[in-house]
């Protein structure tokens, strides 16, 4: 770097030591004007960028969601987004994603080729080793069980925690994980629980991965919490999801 930096360092040049008077202050009006100008230009740029990319971003998000749902429910061909209301009952969410009212749970109904209900997909969040582990799981109303999971977002240690998407034995837990409701439909009959590797005895338990217990537990808790919140509201209303209109 060259000469200009000398001023910043407050080195007083020997020859002009007398001229060390502070630089004249800028008038307030000029400051406000320039800040206003900058804000206006920047505002225009941001709005332009937002408008220009809006469709592509929305399409991307939809594709990403569909892909996640199709992964946990392989038979699905189309999806629709629903909300389970806090008081019970479900409502369809229009495309574009309106604001979600507090207390309600978002889920996706998936339909197969003929338009029949192929399953339900919902997201769950559990505290993992590094950060929250967000998973998507597929729910099959016929057997009242979880039939597949996929990871939406996680920051677990590569090679250890991320085995939850590669470890075949672990994924085998989710071919028919029991999430039956109690007879009064108020809660799950049995809590979904992650147990120590090799000690799975019941259909509602998950065998943890050796060495990745915390992440495995996060998956179990994510499914449990989400199922506890969603299923009691969903199951009585299954017929409302109907078939693809």
């Amino acid at each position: 770097m060259s000469a200009p930096s000398a001023n910043d360092k407050k080195v007083i040049p020997i020859a002009v030591a007398a001229a060390a008077a502070p630089p004249p202050e800028s008038p307030t009006g000029a400051m406000i004007r320039s800040l206003g100008l900058v804000s206006a230009i920047c505002g225009l740029i941001i709005v332009g960028a937002y408008q220009g990319t809006y469709d592509a971003v929305a399409a991307n998000k939809r594709i990403a969601t569909e892909r996640a749902v199709f992964k946990v429910l392989p038979k699905a061909k189309t999806i629709a987004e629903f909300l389970a209301q806090p008081g019970g009952g479900v409502s369809r969410v229009g495309a574009g994603g309106t604001a979600i009212p507090p207390g309600s749970v978002k889920f996706f109904a998936a339909y197969d080729e003929s338009g029949k209900l192929a399953g339900i997909a919902a997201e769950g969040v559990g505290k993992g080793y590094a950060d929250n582990v967000r998973i998507m799981f597929g729910y099959q109303p016929d057997c009242q069980c979880v039939v597949g999971i996929g990871v939406v977002a996680m920051r677990e240690t590569p090679g250890i925690g991320d085995k939850i998407i590669t470890d075949k034995e672990f994924l085998a837990n989710f071919t028919a994980l029991d999430v039956k409701l109690k007879s009064d439909l108020s809660a799950l009959a049995n809590e979904v629980r992650t147990v120590k590797r090799g000690s799975k005895t019941n259909a509602w338990q998950i065998d943890a991965i050796a060495g990745a217990t915390i992440t495995s537990r996060a998956v179990g808790r994510a499914i449990n919490d989400s199922a506890q919140a969603l299923l009691p509201r969903l199951v009585p209303n299954l017929d409302k999801l109907g078939s693809k209109s």
Partner: peptide, 13 residues
Amino acid sequence: ATFVTAVDYAIQA
């Protein structure tokens, strides 16, 4: 910050 926001949208797209 303006251009970062624009890039942010672009990458999402």
